[in-house]
Structure formats: structure tokens, C-alpha cells
Amino acid sequence: MTTSDLLYAIGEADESFVDEAGDSDAKVRRFGAWEAENRSGKRFATIMKWTGVAAMFLVLIVAAWIYADGGKVFRKDGDLRKTDEIFSQEAITEECVSEVIIQESGSPSAEGSGSIGVERAESLSAADLGSIGAEESFGTEEIAVVEGSEEDVFDAYKPTEEAIQQGERVKTMLISSFAVDSDAEAISAAKIRDDMAVANGSVFLSSSLCGAIDYFGNREECRYRVYVELFQDGVQIANDREVAKKEVQRLANLGYVVAMETCSDGNATQIYFTLHATADQVKNFAADAKVGYALWLYDEKVEVDENATGPVDVWYGGMNAPMENFDGAQK
């Protein structure tokens, strides 16, 4: 048997599977073009096209009014109230958080369950929260199951005044997933997919990230594990490019805790650019005017690959710290 035989055999795949893989075409085509193929849809397509254009003008007028009125714009001053209007918070209720379980890395909470996925607890110096020097090392605390109300959990992690003053190492919670209304998540995912790029100087925040920040806020013991995608002039930048590396260093110098994770799955090496950010750092993200950013919660974008082999190298950087390589996963 040759690879050609295999190629021919794949070509004999069930036609329903082939059409299933081809159907996605409908989702990425422009709305008007898709409808035009419908036998009775040409006129409908024309009407919908012009309705869409009119709707766009209306949205632009409203947006301009809000801007001119000094209202809160999505990114301009970091206020997320506009986001609240866009993304439904109906799925989040007090009852959902009657029990919070600290989960190990790679096992996010089920979607729609209302529970919260929390990454492993990590030790950070209380005095250096958000500003980790290269000489600090990360350790992974023993995973503990904490049952009780949300406040019980956070009480276990809240650093005491004494600890802060003495610069003792305290635990923080690194939030890497959050369940939001499924429609909002679909809107969020569709927006970034359809747009394909974030404009220079702009910041896109996923619904899950916004939901988590709205819910947990700016607690001292909370950090958000943010997965970052970079764009420039409408094109996504690979994380091994010079532009990406400079951006990482720039953010580290501004006090962001940055992590560059590299992982090999045996076939390719992937590099993930992540932040361990406070709510303020996300809401008031220090964007460069020449770069566009899409910020996600880590688990929205990274799946644990069972076939991944080799160590996971994690680079951390902080205030004015050079980028050093820490083998954080193995400590």
C-alpha cells in the first residue's frame, strides 16, 4: 500500500462527511453571497444586504453619539460596563458558586454548568504581586479541595496585612476558565473569527474573560491567566516573531507578569503568549498603537494535548526583569 492508495481511500469517504466538512463554507461566506445561491433568495439577499448596510450605519451613528457623549467605550478607558450590555450575565447566579473546587491544570469546568475552573494555586511574593523579578521562582502548591461558599475559598487565599508587609509568599488564584452564557461565547468567538484581526491599537476581550473579571473583580489574590493573540495591520503575528518578542518584553517592563510557554507535541512546537494579569491590568491594557490584541482566558484557547511530549518551558518576566527561562512545570 502506498500513500497514494491512502489518498484514494480517503477520497472514498462517505459523502455526507465530505459535505459536512464543506458546509462550513456557508458560515464564512459573506451573507449576501450565500443567500444569492438560494433559488428564491436573490431578492431576499438584496433586501437583507441593504438592511445590513442600514443597520451598520445606525450602529456607527449610535457609537459616535456614545463616544461624543463621553460614554464608556469598550476599550477607551477600560471600563467594562459596555461589555456587560453586550454579553449576557444571566448564566451567572449566586447559586452557581455554592461550591468552588480548585482544579488541576488542564481540567476546566464543564460549559454551562455555572461552576468555575481555577488553575493551580501558585506562590507569589505578596510584595511583588504583578511584578515578579527574574530571581523569583514559581512553585506549585499541593492542590487542595476547598468546599464551601466563594467567600470561604477566597478567604483561604487572601493575604493578611502582616504577610504583605513582611513580603511573605502568599497564594494567589490563577483563573483560566469561566463559564458564561453560550450565546455570548458564540458571539465572542464568531466576532474574532469573522473579523480575522484586531485593529492596531485595539484590544478585544473574550466574553469569558469579561465574565470572570466582572465576577471576581480586582481581588488582591486573583490573577487572570490570559492567552494573548497579537495582530498587526490586520494579520495575526506568530509568537516566535521579533515583533511578538518585543511586545512581550515591553509588557514585562510595564509590570505585567508574562509567560511564554513552549510545548512540543512531537510534530510541531507551539509557543503560547500568556499573562498572569490583575483585573486592572486587563481592563486598562497597555496597548501599543501599532499592535492589535485579542485577550482570552487560557482554557478557551489551549487544550491539553495528551500526545504532547517534552517539557513545557515557561518564561516569566516582570518589572524591568530580563526574560529568564524557568522550568516552572517541573517544580
Binding site: D265, Q270, E306
Partner: peptide
């Protein structure tokens, strides 16, 4: 990756796993 909004890494991982 562009069609489905996945990262290229995820696409490569899925393909690698499926070939295995």
C-alpha cells in the same frame, strides 16, 4: 485554522493525533 477559528497549533495537534 482560519476557517474554524482554531490556532494552527490545535489543528496540527488534531491532525497528528488522528494520523496516529
Amino acid at each position: 485554522s482560519k476557517r474554524y477559528g482554531y490556532t494552527q497549533g490545535k489543528v496540527k495537534s488534531v491532525l497528528h493525533r488522528m494520523r496516529g
